[in-house]
């Protein structure tokens, strides 16, 4: 048995050291050199303080903001240390009830809106942390945001246009828009010209 036990234990220890310790530390070291911001979580800063991550969604429910997708994390939505979907099956009555409530909330916040409700705006994402909504979901909310903020609708629409992301090479990804970036751009909009805005980092004084 010594021809099995000794090599097994030794090889196991070597491989643990190599793939379990050396490998992750080496990757961390190189990643810190090449992509320090991404490796640290793509944090978004405002006034020197981290206010979120550009790849992790946040909850928005004030009518003056674009709302994110519904989140099934608990106990609060967009709880980033308890990522989860709703896991409701297609026939689960709780799913239809939840979607009905969400449609009603959207309509109550904007009774005059006659656009069809985009499906992604009333269904919970897989992670509960989806940072993005579809362009249709942004367009649906544009009139409400403009009205509550007293902005011309074209200005809000232009902001959507400048933040929208399309398919890479026409193949990869869906047309979508980052909600946190869009809302942060909205918050500084009145003081700036919409045409020069491309995220807060590039905002210029008027």
């Amino acid at each position: 048995m010594n021809t099995i036990i000794r090599p097994a234990i030794t090889l196991f220890l070597i491989m643990t050291l190599l793939t379990g310790i050396v490998y992750p530390f080496a990757v961390t070291g190189i990643a810190q050199l090449l992509f320090p911001a991404q490796a640290a979580g793509s944090l978004v800063m405002a006034g020197g303080q981290p206010v979120g991550s550009s790849v992790i969604g946040q909850s928005f429910s004030d009518p003056k903001y674009f709302w994110s997708r519904p989140s099934a994390t608990s106990p609060q939505p967009y709880n980033a240390i308890a990522s989860s979907g709703s896991n409701q099956g297609p026939l689960n009555p709780a799913l239809a009830d939840a979607i009905k409530t969400r449609v009603e909330a959207l309509k109550a916040a904007d009774p005059a809106n006659t656009l069809p409700v985009p499906v992604d705006l009333v269904t919970a994402s897989a992670s509960g942390l989806d940072p993005e909504i579809s362009i249709a979901a942004a367009n649906y909310q544009a009139a409400r945001v403009a009205r509550v903020r007293g902005l011309p609708p074209e200005e809000v629409q232009a902001l959507i246009g400048s933040h929208a992301r399309g398919r890479l090479f026409g193949l990869l990804g869906e047309p979508r828009i980052n909600v946190l970036e869009l809302n942060m751009a909205l918050d500084i909009l009145p003081a700036h010209s919409a045409a020069t805005l491309r995220g807060s980092r590039f905002a210029r004084s008027p």
Binding site: R69, G85, S86, N87, Q88, P90, L95, I99, V103, P116, V117, P118, V119, D120, V122, T123, A124, S125, A126, S127, D130, P131, E132, I133, S134, I135, A136, A137, N139, G173, E174, P175, R176
Partner: peptide, 21 residues
């Protein structure tokens, strides 16, 4: 009354439990 049609501005379909990207 929810729109599940795919278009140039939305993926449509069954988006429960799926990510926008």
């Amino acid at each position: 009354g929810v729109d599940q049609t795919a278009s140039l501005t939305q993926p449509g379909g069954n988006m429960e439990g799926k990510e926008s990207r």
